[in-house]
Simulated scan of single mutants.
Amino acid sequence: MNAPIRKIIHVDMDAFYASVEQRDDPSLRGRPVAVGHGARRGVVAAASYEARAFGVRSALPSVTALRQCPDLVFVPPRFEVYRAVSAQIHAIFAEFTDLIEPLALDEAYLDVTANRAGIETAWLTAKAIRARILEETGLTASAGVSYNKFLAKLASGQRKPNGQFAIQPHEGEAFVEALPVAKFHGVGPATAAKMHALGVQTGADLKALSLGELQARFGKSGGWYFGIARGVDERAVNPSRERKSSGSETTFDTDLTDPDRIKAGIVEMADDVWAWCEKTGRRGRTVTVKVKWADFQNTTRSRTLGGLVQTREQLQAASVALIESVLPAPKGIRLVGVTLSGFAGVGEMDAQDRLLLGPQAA
């Protein structure tokens, strides 16, 4: 007996951070807004659609953004507000399905195959979800509807903002064939450039390559590309998908070479990560330090400890030891970051970890 065709919805909020700011401050509506810091060393975290019309995008340096859009208004991020709104949105999702896979604060996959809400089609379900979000939060969302996650994700970008698009099972393969590979979700600039060098510009070009050729060129990813070129993605919506790391980074006002100031920045970032650990109760074993040099080259250093990081001081010490491995700085450092990964749930902890964490681990 064949399994039913999945009904997957990818919901993506429209310019989420910037839209929240425009909602909460009416003077910002209709204006180009960037969430971030407008200082010389700042970067754009998110941009409103009015700002995007000028080419302002996330991760763009603030000075470049202001050059492209002199009327750009910068507002500092309020992540506690964004998290609260995200919780409202996910509560709405739960009215329609238990199978919710969050990707970020502003997007998620929903499997509505079981049709818990009793709505005739996935298309109408997506419309109902978007209407509830607008009613509850005053914000708009876009949605993609299809029979797998890959196509639903692609579909959600087709009618932005405040729209939705469906790719039916009989349309999937042709849709992918016509799409430039650079627009495939999961194909970054480096992979796209590698594909272009092979003469692969579209999904149809990708489909023309055999599984063996793709595996020879792209290793384990070759099988994935072989499938999506044919509109095939067997991944299930995973409601238990866990966060694999937590990190924090900062850009200095000026390029630094002074070891004490660099270490102070690392300690501050370690404190940010530890605050998240305390809030969530999560603990990890692997500490990674990131350095972005004045010439924008990146260096990372990692260390996996014998047990879980148990204290703020332990995370600080591990982070400082890693940054010391690149000191004295041969050139200016513009950014540093600390990430903790290798998380373990209580069931995965060894006896020593349980003892060190105390009764809350039981």
Rank of each mutant, 00 (worst) to 15 (best):
R6I: 01
K290P: 06
A3K: 15
G337E: 07
L308V: 11
N148S: 08
A117S: 14
A229P: 06
F175T: 07
P77A: 05
Q314K: 14
V320H: 06
S319F: 10
W276C: 01
V20I: 15
T299A: 07
V63P: 00
D25L: 05
W276D: 14
F150E: 07
G284S: 14
R57G: 01
R235T: 15
K183M: 13
R241H: 06
D258V: 02
A46C: 11
A87E: 06
R52M: 06
Y109S: 10
G219E: 00
T288S: 09
R261Q: 08
R41P: 00
V20A: 02
H185S: 07
P259K: 03
A34I: 13
D350R: 03
K279M: 08
K149C: 04
E80N: 11
G203I: 04
A47M: 04
R40P: 06
G231S: 05
I9P: 13
L305M: 13
D353Q: 08
L308F: 12
T304E: 05
G199S: 14
V145M: 10
G203Y: 12
Q297V: 00
A91C: 03
G332N: 10
T257G: 02
V287M: 04
L28W: 10
Q360C: 05
I5Q: 14
V187F: 15
T286C: 13
H185G: 07
L327V: 11
I92E: 00
T254M: 03
I9Y: 14
A84V: 02
A204E: 12
R285G: 11
E242A: 15
L28V: 01
S240K: 14
W224F: 12
M195R: 12
R301H: 08
D24S: 11
A190K: 14
E95L: 03
A59P: 10
P239H: 12
E313H: 09
G203M: 09
D111I: 01
N162Q: 07
D24W: 10
V237A: 03
L355Y: 14
E213V: 01
N115Y: 13
G36T: 09
I8C: 08
S246F: 14
E21S: 05
V112F: 12
L28Q: 14
N298K: 08
A117G: 11
G212V: 09
A178D: 08
L198I: 09
D272E: 14
A47G: 04
A34M: 08
A174C: 05
E80K: 13
V11P: 04
F165T: 09
Y17R: 00
S146D: 08
S48P: 01
A344Y: 11
A182G: 07
V176S: 07
Q164Y: 15
F54D: 02
V85K: 04
G203R: 09
T113C: 08
R40Q: 11
V145R: 12
Q314A: 15
R29I: 11
R283K: 07
D98V: 03
T339N: 07
S245L: 02
R31N: 05
T280S: 15
G332D: 02
S19A: 15
R261H: 07
F296W: 13
A15P: 04
P32S: 12
T280L: 02
A178G: 04
I266N: 06
E313Q: 15
S156R: 00
V338D: 03
E213I: 03
